[in-house]
Each structure stands twice: as C-alpha cells, then as structure tokens.
Amino acid sequence: MYDWIIQNKGLLKIIYALAITLICAIIVMKTHRLFRLSFHQGIRYFRNAFLFFGLGFFIRYFLDPFFPQYHLVAKILFEFFLVMAGFFLLYSLLWKKLESSKKNYSSSLWNKNIFIFYLMAFIIVVLDLIWNKYIFMFLSQFIIFSIASLVSYNNYIQKGRQRKFLKFYFLAMVLSLITWLLNFVLVMWMNWNQSILMNIYGLNIIVFLLFLFGVIKITNSK
C-alpha cells in the first residue's frame, strides 16, 4: 500500500490540494453569506483564514506541478498565505479583546491591525528563504496553534455544555497543532520522509473536514 502511495504521490498531492481547496471554498462561501448578513468581525476573520488556506494549498499543490518554472513563486506564496491564514484564525478568536466593537473596518484584508500580520508573515517568508527551509513557518504556526488551542479550550470550559461544537473546535485546533509539530519534526530530523508526510496529509484532511463539519452542521440547521 505504502509503495503504491509513494509511486503515485504526485497524483495524490493534486487530489489532496483539490480536496482542501474545495473544503475551504465551501467554508468561505457559507461564512461569507453569514458575514454579509451580520457584519460580525469574528465571522469575517474566520472566513479570511480559510480563504488564505485555500489559496495557499491550491497554488502549492495544484498550480505548482503544472508550472514548474514558477516553483519559487509558488513556494513563497504558499508560505505567505498559510502564515496569514494562521494569523486570521487566531485573530478570529481574539478580536473582541483587541478591537472596539464600535470600530468597523471597511476592509478586513487591509487595515492597521492586519498590516502587522502581513509584516510578520513577510519577515517569516524572508527568513525561511534565507535558511532555505520552512523552519520559521513551522515555529510560527506552532506558536499560533498553541495559543488558539488554549483559547478554544477556555471557550469549551466556559460554554461547552450549551455549545456542543466547541469541543470539536478545540479538537480541530489540537490536531492542527500536532500536524504542524509533525511537519517541524519531519523537516528537522527526518529529511522529509515521504511515508510520514503522506500520514500528515491524511491528518490535515481530517482537520479541514472537522472545520467543514462544524460549518455545515450549524449553517444548515434551522
């Protein structure tokens, strides 16, 4: 089985990219509709996170194999979008503490708070380019998802009895954290071992399916 997976990894990566892009597209469409009605900033940042995740995976695993001459550009954009997605996901949990509820930015992609994220993402991408490894991205994501796990655990403890999905959301955050940790171990000590990498892809799909499950379950309920 593993031999077959390794032999067909090119094809599997494309299927993987399409699956995650499709999941992200559904989440973005469903949450965009909720945002257009509610103008809720938390929903807006959550939507942006999945917009960036979708763009990142689509460019790196779907476009990149067909345009190998632009590999470096795809690599840079992939990292930039993924780091930004992590920031947006964390910010969707923390925005209430950092923004006034009266403050309503006309753009959630370009305002002074988000500019700091762009700047940090840019620095992370440049540092990784210099080192020629994804170390800074993995470290930043590890920190982001550690904080996100703590915040979502706190939400679960406070309101978990009334809001059943908080438990799954916390689980999704912890699984994301484990995924990034495994990525870090893989790049540092295991020289991109392909069979472990395929397992990480599988785990990543489970995480995205968990997010999708929550979004569909709640947006389709009446």
Binding site: S38, G214, T219
Partner: peptide
C-alpha cells in the same frame, strides 16, 4: 428585505458565533 433575512437567519448566526467562540 435584508433586515427580514437577518431575522430569519439570526439563530444560525448566533449559533455559529457561539459554537466557534468568535
């Protein structure tokens, strides 16, 4: 009509915000 649509979807919006801790 947009205001009416908000009222129809209010429960879903509230549920979403609370269940994701947003």
């Amino acid at each position: 009509s947009k205001g009416n649509e908000f009222l129809q979807e209010y429960k879903i919006i509230e549920n979403f915000v609370e269940n994701f801790g947003l």
